[in-house]
Simulated assay, not measured.
Amino acid sequence: MKNTPLPDDVGRIRAFNRTLTRRLGVLNERYLGRDRPYVESRLLFEIGADGATARELRQRLGMDSGFLSRLLRTLEARNLATTQPSAADARVKAVRLTRSGLAELRKIDALSDKLAQSMLDSLDESQSQRLVAAMAEVERLLRASSVEIAPEEPDGAGARHCLDRYFAELDARFPGGFDRSHGHSSDTSDYRAPGGCLLVARLFGEPIGCGALRTLARGVGEIKRMWVSPDARGLGLGRRLLCELEQAARKHRMRTLRLDSNGTLAEALRLYRSAGYREIERFNDNPYAQHWFEKALR
């Protein structure tokens, strides 16, 4: 369900953005007193000590390839970074910091810590705690607002990543482990159009969650493979995925949705019950299922 912000809400967000960018000094051509603007310093940080690929940098920073290429050329000209074909795949550009780049990164980190401390120095203890708590909440909500959910092919890289993590978590959490050969767990053909779909949630380009829908019978669908990365839990993503799957089911002219779950997945059981799913008798032969649910769609 889309949220319609009030005009005052939009104004407050814009005011917050203006205050934040000014306080952080990101509008200064010499960010943190160094000989470069904020965007170049941020790129050094994202490359980091371990390096990164150009594709990863584009995803993390939301940059187009042309702008990123220009920034990388600037860093290379200053002997702060190098860009070379990856040893694993020559089509992939691997970016690494030089010795000078690593030294500069350490300086930037120290200056960033000093800037953060300066935000607390003029506040009393109570105000400092309120500011840090508010920043943590804003950061969490901004991450939640940055998540994008879209259908993907079940054999796509993002879908495979999520499904592999999903099965690995079941194997770790179920008392007797999880065998993917049972219950047609490796069969994803039902999650393709026109009978179903598979949704993948991404945060800054990285897959962090999934959910699938398949047809059980005419007008009846089943939700499968609901998973959210532990790093993304607490963002309301499970509920968003569930709502998106219900919307997809309506488009498939499904009037009823069913799903099953295991008793060890307490958070999933709470989600389904709070979303209006009621427990019913067993409707499948899934050997790992202990609870069965159904919901009539409106």
Rank of each mutant, 00 (worst) to 15 (best):
K2T: 05
N3L: 14
N3T: 13
P7T: 04
P7D: 04
D8G: 07
D9P: 04
V10I: 14
V10M: 13
V10Y: 15
R12Y: 14
I13V: 12
R14H: 15
R23W: 12
G25L: 11
V26C: 03
N28F: 12
E29T: 12
E29L: 08
R34K: 13
R34S: 09
R36V: 02
E40N: 08
R42H: 14
E46H: 10
D50A: 11
D50S: 11
T53V: 07
R55S: 06
Q59M: 08
L61A: 02
L61M: 11
D64C: 09
F67M: 11
R70W: 14
R70A: 08
E76N: 10
A77C: 06
A77D: 04
L80Q: 03
T82E: 15
P85Q: 07
S86C: 10
A88R: 15
D89R: 15
R91G: 04
K93F: 08
V95G: 02
L97I: 03
T98K: 10
R99D: 13
L102S: 11
A103Q: 14
E104H: 07
K107P: 00
S118Q: 08
D121E: 15
D121T: 10
S122E: 15
L123T: 02
Q127M: 12
S128N: 09
S128M: 12
S128R: 15
V132K: 05
A134Y: 13
A136E: 09
A136Y: 09
E148T: 11
I149A: 02
A150Q: 14
A150G: 05
P151N: 07
E153Y: 15
R160E: 12
R160K: 13
Y166K: 04
L170V: 00
D171I: 01
G176T: 09
G177A: 03
F178I: 00
H182A: 12
H182R: 15
H182G: 03
S189D: 06
S189M: 04
Y191D: 03
L199E: 03
P207S: 05
I208V: 07
G209M: 02
L213H: 05
G219R: 10
K224I: 05
M226N: 05
V228Y: 08
S229C: 02
S229V: 00
P230R: 06
R233M: 00
G238F: 03
R239S: 09
E244S: 09
A248V: 05
A249W: 09
R250W: 12
H252I: 04
L259S: 04
T264D: 14
R270F: 08
L271Q: 01
Y272C: 00
Y277V: 00
E281Q: 14
N284R: 11
Y288E: 00
Y288D: 00
H291L: 08
H291C: 06
H291P: 05
K295C: 01
A296K: 15
